[in-house]
Write a protein that binds this DNA or RNA. Structure first.
Lengths: 380, 380
DNA sequence: AAAATGCAGTTAATCGATTAACTATAAAGC
DNA sequence: GCTTTATAGTTAATCGATTAACTGCATTTT
């Protein structure tokens, strides 16, 4: 039915080996023969059967990208960026991208291993691993090309490419401190994502340096999205007595705490949610409360808010991870990689720095556009 | 090295055929044998080699999703939603998802055909086709399972699953008319995407019904994203003399037109951009200018804006398309599908309806939460 | 002149399943 | 008692490439 390699061979009066060698560009075939075979191939509309090739060569030229199983995950701008970076690099190198979500089934039935064992893929990129993903220990044993992207699991000795979360958290917080803020709240993403912990550590480091004690009452838990960021901020404002409709009983009797003058949110989505909460309470960003986010998703610059944030080129992170994975596959060098990409502060409107006025403390604002970064040492 | 089917057969003292039949759940094998074989399979950690199976069965259990080659495409919430819908249905039905972007190369070198010819995929979902994608005519000839998602090309007789764009445009515009607006601007996405044209037709239909003439000076071109939506709205406000910084020469001498009291934007992203422009000019949404969008992306409800929009469940659209594609693959029924999904108006804040005040015209606002929809007939 | 090397291929085994066609045995039908 | 039917398998061809090992011939080396 469809043209196959042996048809080409017959038509050219050569063996199938010759045709195959022509296709792989072997030097064992003369120019004349190459030309002849190539012409016949073109004329006949021949395409190699990938399954046959896979069976024979035992590689698939396919990578799998695994993303967390959050509903509507692909609408999340963070994952979108990562995926774009991965895709562009992979397709440039003739790799196909297979998409998977880390559903319950995917994990429980070890489908992540199945993909390797069945020989469906050559390597795997795992985006956004959390402490719940301890089953990834399976990748420590056998030698399957595997890289985590954007997060990692400290206990496991597996490759990863991540942003410099600690420095990011540090820069964001230090920036606020340098703007004169002393009471800075922190809205964190789920601590099961280790990056969130690292950002928190950066926050604490900056406070420590400035001699500001960490106040637990202004550290709020959220879950990396707009909604929970909003909720966290509402809760905070409630605690500060900024909300007119107050609950009675336990909550109300806790008493009112001093309102922070700034908030560092563990990612941009949560920052955007926080801003919405602030504005809903008729407070002003950045005048009443300055806000800094992290990730620099495209939305941050486009929306109403002109968010000050920490950039670490999520697209690039995806690209680098893909590059490393392909290197691992093709060199079959199973060297671990633990790559931490640099971050930088992007100063826009929500922190108040660009107003170039004197801060409360009375000293002139220093705008750190591109602070020097000391690349931190991997954890293990 | 790795366990293969013949190893299992040997260990069980049966033929490879038997093992294969057990695996495919054939009734030709006795219960006892099945149990025995299954146990050995489990113990040995056997996984079938997918390439061998593909070669033998001539199907791949893989679908390809093609998305437009807009940079950072996966960060676009529309495509994210579609992809989520597709992914969830596909993986539930044991299909793998291959991701491709319609790059220049992909189109020019007919890689979309190659994927079929090489037997890499069983079917293809093409998201967001435009009039530029005329090469898709290739899919009219051969019988390759192929469905367009979210858009279509009128000249080509190819399957598609889309939202009811015409009715959507109609409902949005009628809603604004019912709120008392008579001067309603339209910001459209690129007309190369036929859905944009359909939305425009809906807009015109509603105006016609209300006896309002179409005014070209308040119809603006944008490109489905926040930025161009913002730019279009700025341009409009400039024309209306709302902008203090005015250009001299040609633009300025055109004279000032009356400002619309409402805007219908061809999608939510553009609506969000428009709102930003309006607010930047110190005008109020919805008091000075009401805004209605279309698509109901998740952001619309989460952001500052509480956008009134037309919903057509993009996630569902992806799901339905995937369902139909798999049907086409497995029944090898090459029946064309042209499915148009219903839309409904989602009334939130930006149209002003929920304020329940009297509109300018002096009559009471009717809120249409769920208007009856007459499913329109496909175009061809 | 014999041996070594290079060139341009060919032969045939191999990758690991699936499945149409066949067989052997037992049970049922008439 | 012979034929038919059902059950539970087996045999062996097949899917379509790739590639290690080999061949035959020409040229170069010694």
């Amino acid at each position: 039915m469809t043209v196959k390699l042996s048809d080409i061979a017959k038509q050219c009066g050569v063996s199938t080996a010759t045709v195959s060698l022509v296709l792989s560009g072997s030097s064992r075939i003369s120019r004349a023969t190459k030309r002849r075979v190539l012409r016949v191939i073109k004329q006949s509309g021949y395409y190699p059967n990938i399954a046959a090739r896979m069976l024979s060569t035992n590689n698939t030229k396919a990578l799998c990208v695994v993303v967390p199983h959050i509903s509507h995950i692909f609408s999340n701008p963070f994952f979108g960026e990562v995926l774009s970076g991965i895709y562009d690099y992979a397709s440039k190198n003739d790799y196909k991208i297979l998409l998977e979500a880390a559903t319950y089934e995917f994990c429980f039935y070890k489908k992540y291993l199945q993909l390797f064992k069945e020989r469906t893929i050559d390597g795997m990129l795992y985006v956004g691993s959390t402490l719940d993903d301890a089953y990834l220990i399976d990748f420590e044993k056998d030698n399957m090309p595997f890289i985590q992207v954007g997060s990692y699991i400290p206990e496991l000795n597996l490759s990863y490419v991540i942003g410099d979360n600690l420095t990011g958290g540090y820069l964001a917080t230090r920036h606020l401190i340098e703007l004169g803020h002393r009471r800075i709240a922190f809205i964190t993403g789920n601590f099961k994502v280790v990056s969130a912990q690292d950002r928190f550590m950066g926050y604490k480091k900056a406070l420590r340096e400035a001699g500001i004690p960490v106040d637990k009452s202004i550290i709020l838990k959220a879950d990396f999205d707009e909604k929970t960021g909003y909720q966290a901020m509402c809760k905070l404002l409630e605690r500060c007595g900024d909300v007119t409709i107050r609950r009675f009983g336990k909550e109300a009797s806790r008493g009112v705490i001093a309102r922070p003058t700034a908030v560092f949110a563990g990612n941009d989505l949560m920052a955007l949610g926080a801003i919405r909460a602030v504005e809903e309470k008729k407070l002003k960003v950045p005048d009443d409360i300055a806000v800094v986010g992290m990730d620099n998703i495209r939305m941050s610059a486009a929306g109403d808010s002109m968010l000050t944030t920490v950039e670490y080129n999520i697209y690039q992170m995806g690209k680098v991870a893909c590059e490393e994975l392909i290197k691992q596959i093709e060199d079959s060098a199973d060297g671990q990689i633990k790559e931490i990409l640099p971050v930088k502060l992007v100063v826009r409107e929500t922190c108040g720095a660009n107003r170039r006025r004197l801060s409360k403390g009375g000293y002139v604002v220093k705008v750190i556009k591109n602070p020097s970064i000391n690349p931190p040492v991997p954890n293990n």
